[in-house]
């Protein structure tokens, strides 16, 4: 039992992004372990796309991802709600003018 508690092989963690049919964006599906890029792709396909609803897969080593932290939430995102000049409704346009 202590034998197996000794370091087992370390297969890094990868995040998987799947693009369903129709040119949609790649969406995060979950994570997998794989020793190398090739197996990461194949495992990602087996785990997240074996029922066929995928046109494309991305795999990224989890350590390569930079993410915001919960503490960032306020400074990064909340002011955006107040910037009404980024929203179409802020701008007045004459009635009946098409294409705006």
């Amino acid at each position: 039992m202590s034998e197996s508690a000794a370091r087992d092989a370390d297969w890094p963690l990868w995040e998987v992004f799947v693009q369903e049919e129709g040119g949609a964006a790649h969406v995060h599906a979950g994570s997998i372990h794989a020793p190398d890029r090739e197996m990461a792709l194949q495992n990602a396909r087996d785990v997240y796309a074996r029922r066929g609803r995928a046109a494309s897969l991305w795999v990224v080593e989890s350590s390569a991802i930079t993410a915001t932290t919960p503490a960032d939430r306020a400074p990064f995102f909340e002011p955006a709600f107040d910037k009404i000049y980024r929203h179409p409704q802020f701008y007045k346009v004459p009635r009946g003018v098409r294409g705006l």
């Binding site: 087992d8 092989a9 190398d36």
Partner: peptide, 10 residues
């Protein structure tokens, strides 16, 4: 185990 180790080593 030897399989997992081989993949890591490779």
């Amino acid at each position: 185990r030897w399989v997992r180790e081989a993949a890591e080593a490779h």
